[in-house]
Design a protein around this nucleic acid. Structure first.
Lengths: 195, 195
DNA sequence: TTTTCAAATGAACAGATGTTCAGTTAGATG
DNA sequence: CATCTAACTGAACATCTGTTCATTTGAAAA
């Protein structure tokens, strides 16, 4: 039954990636088998190997593509002006970007330990690159006299942990609209790094 | 070779739990087999079933015992006085308690999705109970006029995410002494919820 | 010394695992 | 129309999975 209607690599490829993201986010990389993934896509297990050389590379590609997109998107959203505006943009971007991408965030944060060493190193580099964006903003704020904190590196990690923890463990309750969540977080972050 | 020297349940039992915590933290629940765990303990796979009815219950017990201990320990450390003192005690407790228990923290935060539904519900209840301790402090602070924030529930999650993120993803670098880390975090938290 | 039994072994179970590949199919091409 | 070939099937591979249990061991009690 090969080449069914609408069953081209242009369609199956993205389907594999979407299904992998969803299943891995829900059950974890090690707990999802290639046969489960194939079933979710509507294909036999062997067909997946037209889209990835192996399971490990599939995981790596999902994480890398997500992080590369995060960084590129932020660089576009960054006003590159004063530290306060940039920090506000960072918080806003982080929340708005991650909210509709819960599965990708989950995978990128939870599956690091399932990466083989060289893959892990590459992903850590990307994660670090994103953190460095925030750290640079905090240091700019210190230089401008707008912010004050005891340790910019720890503050960076604390803020990212604070922002990401929300999307990582607490699924959208719908209690609060996006603007509200953004305002609440901005209030906390803004005050935390204030002089 | 049964009952080797010093090989009683008083010794093997804790060894199983320690090895499980270490291996699951490092590789994930699904990625650790009972045979790997047994090898780490220095025993055959079958012997593990003297210490747990099954793999799932082992995971659940590790998570439950950790969370129960967290809550009990905090309740002892809680000064139960003014909100500012209590918040300071919470931050100090959280950091000092979790720092030497990185494996348990990791497992309790990362393996929720590998719990069967009723086990998940029980663990979520415990996690919520700990969060509620912090939320109560924040609300007390609001009532006293000491703190001000837009949403105490979101602030609770943000603060816990901020504190826990540190132990979850960033292994101790040794760059900063414990007192320093505590001071940095207290500074951030304190300002974030300030009026 | 003999007895006892908690604690461990090691084989067996049925089924799942990631991956490969010769063969089949059907939409697109000429 | 016949041909081509990307996309997929389905069986096979060696190995691993959680769990059970009859059997063996050896330290401690009698």
């Amino acid at each position: 039954m090969a080449r069914k209607q609408g069953s081209h690599s242009d369609i199956t490829g993205p389907k594999v990636r979407e299904a992998a993201l969803r299943l891995i986010a829900r059950h974890g990389y090690a707990a999802v088998s290639m046969r489960q993934l194939a079933a979710e896509v509507g294909v036999q297990a062997g067909a997946l190997y037209n889209y990835t050389p192996d399971k490990q590379t599939l995981l790596f590609d999902l994480m890398r593509d997500h992080l590369v997109d995060v960084i590129e998107s932020f660089d576009k959203a960054d006003p590159k002006s004063d530290a306060n505006s940039r920090l506000r943009a960072f918080v806003s971007f982080h929340i708005r970007y991650h909210l509709p991408r819960a599965d990708a965030v989950f995978v990128a944060y939870m599956e690091l330990r399932n990466l083989e060493p060289e893959n892990f190193a590459a992903i850590e580099k990307l994660r670090r690159a994103y953190e460095d964006r925030l750290e640079a903003i905090l240091r700019q704020g210190e230089a401008e006299g707008a912010f004050a904190m005891k340790d910019a590196r720890v503050a960076t990690r604390a803020i990212i942990g604070m922002l990401t923890g929300f999307f990582t463990w607490y699924r959208q309750e719908g209690r609060l609209p996006l603007e509200e969540v953004e305002a609440i977080y901005w209030d906390l972050v803004c005050k935390a790094v204030a002089r």
